[in-house]
Amino acid sequence: MPKELAYKVEGVREAVSPFTLGIICGKDRNGQYNAFDLLKQPHILIAGETGSGKSTQLRSILTTLILTKKPSELKLYLGDCKKSEFHIFRKVEHVQCVLSSAKDIGKMLRGIKKELDERSDLTEIFEVGHVDDLPAEHRRPYLVVCIDEFVMLRKNEEIMDILTELVAIGRTLGVFAILSMQRPNAKVLDTTIRANLTVSMGFKLRDVIESRIVNTPGAEAIETSGRFIMNSDKLYELQAPYLTIKKAKELLNPFVIAKGPVKEVTPSTPTSGSLTEKDVFNDVVD
């Protein structure tokens, strides 16, 4: 298994092509790409120390989704609690918002909660088991909520309650979560959330306890950046594609559109050119 695996668009596209919402994982010891369909294995947990490759994996997954789905088919809602990872996606057409404060992420998730309720009502009205089975005029795009370092939101009970509901019922409603953290915490990853995160990717973790929390045994012994243990239908050891920020920007450039003011932080006293709380909320729920 190589110590570094360059992200190559052709190979990645081919790997995810059989799937509706293809998630690229990496290559195994036989040099074969591993990928899966988020519709069939919803919700992902990614954990790993600084420098382990966790952030690059997030970049690869999101970039691949953007390259393979139309903006009318997929909408991304990004929470960047560290204010360092998702800036390159801010002007991409698929991306509805890039938020960093707990206050703004809470507003975003309330909008997602409203969408979950509406989709649930539609499936009941039309007596179908999945939003994909709704009549064409009522179809809705897939939504992916990706929050980096979501452990920083653990003190906000409303946010954690909505995330718990999302991972519990989101699959049939076409709404999915990708959550990441550096230091896995058993109190944050309680039984309900952990049981519904069907895929875990454990990059280098500090100790056996953290590996056990993420459910990726052996992740504490990893020594190579970009190497991780994945637990889905079984355990895999994989090398993640290495996608640089520069390369990601080049790939994303065709999808960049002119947007309004930077949707990141909502100041308590709006200034010229800044979004108000109302603007952020409207951006989310429109």
Score class of each variant (00 low, 15 high):
6 A>W: 12
10 E>Y: 09
14 E>P: 01
15 A>C: 03
16 V>T: 01
18 P>W: 13
18 P>G: 14
20 T>M: 11
21 L>H: 03
22 G>V: 08
23 I>N: 05
26 G>K: 03
26 G>V: 10
29 R>V: 10
29 R>K: 12
34 N>S: 07
37 D>T: 06
40 K>Q: 07
41 Q>Y: 10
42 P>W: 07
43 H>R: 06
43 H>C: 10
46 I>V: 05
47 A>Y: 12
49 E>P: 00
51 G>R: 09
51 G>A: 11
52 S>E: 08
53 G>Y: 02
66 I>D: 01
66 I>Q: 03
68 T>I: 02
68 T>L: 09
69 K>W: 07
69 K>Q: 15
75 K>F: 12
76 L>V: 04
77 Y>F: 15
78 L>D: 01
81 C>N: 09
89 F>S: 11
90 R>H: 12
90 R>V: 03
92 V>S: 06
94 H>A: 02
102 A>Y: 00
104 D>W: 07
105 I>P: 04
110 R>L: 15
115 E>S: 13
116 L>A: 00
116 L>F: 02
120 S>D: 15
121 D>G: 02
129 G>F: 02
130 H>Y: 04
132 D>Q: 14
137 E>A: 12
139 R>G: 11
139 R>H: 15
140 R>E: 12
141 P>H: 07
145 V>E: 01
152 M>W: 07
153 L>M: 11
153 L>Q: 00
153 L>I: 03
154 R>K: 11
154 R>M: 14
155 K>A: 15
156 N>H: 09
156 N>T: 11
157 E>D: 12
167 V>N: 06
168 A>R: 05
170 G>R: 01
174 G>F: 01
179 L>I: 01
179 L>E: 04
179 L>W: 00
180 S>C: 02
185 N>E: 15
186 A>T: 05
187 K>H: 09
188 V>G: 07
189 L>A: 03
194 R>E: 09
199 V>L: 03
201 M>C: 13
205 L>P: 08
208 V>I: 10
210 E>Q: 10
210 E>C: 00
212 R>D: 08
218 G>Q: 06
218 G>F: 07
219 A>P: 05
220 E>D: 05
223 E>F: 05
224 T>P: 03
226 G>S: 10
228 F>M: 05
229 I>L: 08
230 M>E: 07
231 N>D: 11
231 N>E: 14
233 D>W: 01
234 K>Y: 14
235 L>R: 06
236 Y>K: 14
237 E>K: 13
237 E>C: 13
237 E>Y: 00
243 L>M: 11
250 E>W: 04
251 L>M: 14
256 V>K: 11
259 K>E: 08
260 G>T: 04
262 V>I: 12
264 E>W: 00
265 V>T: 08
266 T>Y: 00
266 T>S: 13
269 T>A: 13
270 P>F: 05
271 T>A: 10
272 S>D: 12
274 S>D: 01
275 L>D: 02
275 L>M: 05
277 E>P: 02
277 E>Q: 06
278 K>V: 02
280 V>M: 15
280 V>N: 13
280 V>I: 15
283 D>E: 15
284 V>E: 05
